[in-house]
Design a protein around this nucleic acid. Structure first.
Lengths: 221, 221
DNA sequence: TACCGGCCTCAACCGCTGGTCGAGGGTTGA
DNA sequence: TCAACCCTCGACCAGCGGTTGAGGCCGGTA
């Protein structure tokens, strides 16, 4: 019951993961992905839970190509009880474009400094007419904060322009606005009105859900 | 309709992907991920399809952390009319619950053979309990057609499980279902009830709109 | 005509990730 | 006491995903 030595752990894992080595296990510890106990003399002792954790890490690396940083966040989330501990290995996400994949904070997070565009800059960047933008604002799809617009406004305007080519006009898009509002409302019920670590994670999840639902309801090919 | 220059493409993409640069786009070409046409004098000309491809690449990178090598394989699979398989290069060991194949596709367009899962397969693939699935069905989020489920059901179930960890339960998700239904309804008003070329294009657009709207309404970081 | 911004190629360079390797030394148990 | 095992620490490394800059060609315009 004292746990296993690192050599023994290596044996166990090598059956499943060909490229694991002792130095790699030590490296993973140094990166904070496992924290085995130590004997009085400093030897690592791995519990069954530590082994599970290692398996999780190696699986996520091999099958999903996740960077260690991200795997570490996932493990952290599990530790904080955000996910049933019984849950198996991480699962491959859908590979849709436009779909945020893993529940990781900075999917929807502040990757860089947020754009701040004037109205003219927005019009030029999105390549739309002032008329279209006016309509979008009238229906609450694009909102200026102060006298500037964020980067998402570009995407919204571009997409609206493309949809207009199909005969779908801004007024048909009001439902999207309310759906988005409700979605954000739900997220804020959990995280509170300030932005937290979880905000981005949750947004990624709900958007993924939305996408999958739309797909599933589309006429079958 | 001659396609866009690289500078214009940059503008379009930067709205969505903050860290794209000209040199990155050229790099992606050098790696064989896009192959824009060229003018007589050697200038790159990007078609709409090239743009879609770039979006796919950038999304996969940002949201799923996939290495370019893998993204390239996926694109290749799409080109050959297949759906990209999500699992990695070498061998899948027996320890993992085997996902029958991923519910993935390039965009909403490509017709391939749709997954057909039995209830048990779905439960194993998504790693959720029968109880959760039952709830999801009760609220209309997952629907069996006949006695099988589509690949999207896996994603829906997985996401629902993650949301449950935040205290968000299936009954809180009904609004997502109606929003998705409305969205599909709108699409079908344009394309008719049968699936056409446009169906996928429109779905990609509306989902993009939805995502941008949610992003824009989230509390600022 | 000259100019200037946009685009081209190619090669060199770079920072980060994810480790490996080896020296030098303690621990364990037969 | 010896072999096998384990420890730390610092140096090193390869590959990925680009960036940078030199040198030069387009193409609109004044």
């Amino acid at each position: 019951m004292g746990g296993r030595g690192i050599g023994e752990v290596l044996q166990l894992l090598q059956a499943e993961f060909a490229d694991v080595t002792i130095s790699k296990i030590r490296f993973l510890e140094s990166e904070g992905l496992v924290t085995p106990a130590r004997t009085a003399s400093g030897y690592r002792k791995f519990s069954a839970a530590d082994l599970e954790r290692l398996r999780y890490v190696l699986t996520a690396q091999r099958d999903q190509y996740l960077p260690l940083k991200v795997i570490k966040e996932h493990l952290g989330a599990i530790d904080r009880g955000l996910r049933p501990a019984a849950a198996g290995p991480p699962v491959a996400p859908s590979s849709l474009p436009q779909t945020p994949g893993q529940p990781v904070a900075d999917d929807f997070g502040a990757a860089g400094t947020e754009l701040r565009l004037t109205r003219d800059e927005l019009l030029r960047a999105a390549g739309v007419t002032a008329g279209l933008l006016g309509e979008l604002e009238a229906h609450g799809l694009v909102v200026a904060s102060g006298n500037h617009y964020g980067g998402d406004a570009i995407v919204i305007a571009q997409v609206a322009a493309e949809l207009a080519a199909y005969g779908i006009e801004p007024r048909h898009l009001r439902a999207f606005r309310t759906a988005a509002d409700r979605e954000v409302g739900l997220i804020e019920q959990v995280t509170g009105p300030r932005r937290t670590e979880q905000t981005g994670e949750l947004a990624a999840l709900t958007v993924r859900l939305h996408t999958a639902l739309v797909r599933s309801r589309l006429p079958r090919p």
